[in-house]
Structures are given as C-alpha cells and as structure tokens.
Design a protein around this nucleic acid. Structure first.
Length: 237
DNA sequence: TAGGCCATCTGGTCCT
DNA sequence: AGGACCAGATGGCCTA
C-alpha cells in the first residue's frame, strides 16, 4: 500500500492526521497507479519547474524560483509584451499559418498579432487562476506542507482531495452511528464493530476504562461537560 | 538520459 | 464579436 506521508508537526490541519490514522488512511491515500507514492516524493525541493517553456522562448517566462505556479501567477500580468516576446516560435508559427480564428480574417497582421497576444494573456490569466485554486486546495489537504517539501502535483492534489472528501464523509457517518448508539443508553458490553469504532481496534471503549463520576455513558470524557446529545445528561437536573 | 510535471501558445468550440 | 473553456503541441526543469 501507499506509505503515509511523513508528518509535519508544523503544518497538518488539526486532527487531520489523527483521522487518517484512525481510518487506516488506505482509502485516503489510494491514489491511482502512478500518482501515489511517486507523487509523494517528499523531501526534495522542486526547483524552477516549468515556466518558460512553451510556444517559445521561455526565457522571458522563467520565474526561476520555487513554487512556480503560484508565483508566476501575478508577476506575469504584464503579459501582453511578455507574451509577444516569449512567443518567438509560437508567433512565428502563427505568422506562418497566417490565420487566426475566423474573427481575424480581414484584419491587418498587426491587429491579428495584437488580438493573439490578448488571447494569450487571457489564457495565461485563466491558468493562473486555476493554479491559485489548486494552491488553495493543497492548503486544506492534510499532507506535509513545508517549504522544504515538494508540493503535490496537480493530479495528485485532485486525487488526494477526492479521497479526502470520501474519507471525511465516511468518518462523519461513523460518528453519527456512534452517537446514535450511545444515545440508545446501552452499555457497551461487547466491543464495537470495527465499522463503528473510529478510534481504532484497541480502543474497545473510547472513553477510557475508569468510570467517571458523571454520566454513566461516560460521554463527559469527550468534552468534560455534559453532552446535549446524551439522554442521561439531559435527564440530570 | 528517460520520464514526470509544468507553463505557455495555439486553434477550435461553445456561450453570452 | 468577444470571452471562456478545452486539448494538443512544444520546450524547459527536475528527479530517479
């Protein structure tokens, strides 16, 4: 199976990793082949990535630092000119083709080029927005966020997010069933089925062994206060 | 060096 | 007509 990403004490969202553990994490990390472990090659800083390339003469687009996608979105907003400068090859191809989407027909070459640059700039902006959204998604996914750790790829981010959502839904459902079970007022003389026990196999009774002076359901062990969901607590004056 | 990932350009298509 | 969205192509950077 996929190894759990190394925990980063500084960054994981509260309780996120604990939830991963309690649920085994397999579902969460069950990424499609090729995007799992390799996608989590933590520890290596990804440098200059990408940038420049493309249609041409990437030099003008070389952000050069880390976390390109995020940075590039913004500093390239000058784009019109950048796009033109960078578009050596693309521009050449464009000029060779001598055509531009029906609308360019009948326009002067200079106008065509201007329109093409405008379209390029819009597309760049759109992709930057998309990357910003992906960054936002990464920021809420529990994995090792750290400057010294390579960030998740786009595909890994999407797959991880999907599995995380599924895992959260499952956890929520289990908690609901557990609350319903407790509200029945029954004592847990037998271990909860694994599917009802999000606290791990060893925790037959998640509230600890010692009887608490309060509610017989020991729900106070959760919060230290009477639970509004517990009928025993509600019965008390 | 091959493969993965990425940014950009580009033309097509659809929508307003 | 113009903008948004999409997918293909291209080339750069990085890691194994």
């Amino acid at each position: 199976g996929c190894p759990l990403p190394p925990s980063d004490p500084g960054t994981p969202p509260p309780g996120a990793m604990a939830e991963l553990k309690s649920l085994g994490g397999e579902a969460y990390l069950a990424l499609a082949p090729g995007y799992g472990p390799s996608a989590f090659a933590y520890g290596a800083v990804r440098g200059g990535g990408g940038g420049g390339g493309g249609g041409g003469g990437g030099s003008d687009f070389h952000p050069g630092a880390l976390g390109k996608s995020a940075e590039s979105s913004g500093e390239q907003s000058g784009d019109e000119e950048d796009g033109f400068e960078a578009g050596v090859k693309g521009g050449a191809a464009f000029e060779r083709e001598g055509k531009l989407k029906g609308g360019a027909l009948g326009k002067k070459p200079k106008e065509q080029r201007s329109l093409r640059l405008s379209i390029n700039a819009r597309e760049r902006r759109r992709m930057h927005d998309l990357n910003d959204a992906l960054d936002g998604l990464r920021s809420v996914i529990p994995y090792a966020h750290s400057p010294s750790v390579r960030k998740l790829s786009k595909i890994a981010t999407l797959l991880l997010a999907k599995n995380y959502i599924l895992m959260q839904a499952q956890a929520l459902e289990e908690m609901r069933r557990l609350v319903a079970y407790l509200n029945q007022g029954q004592t847990l003389s037998t271990p909860l089925p694994a599917t009802l026990n999000p606290f791990g196999q060893s925790a037959v009774y998640p509230f600890g062994g010692a009887a608490l002076p309060g509610c017989p359901e020991k729900c106070t062990a959760f919060t230290g206060a009477a639970s509004a969901l517990c009928k025993h607590c509600n019965d008390k004056p």
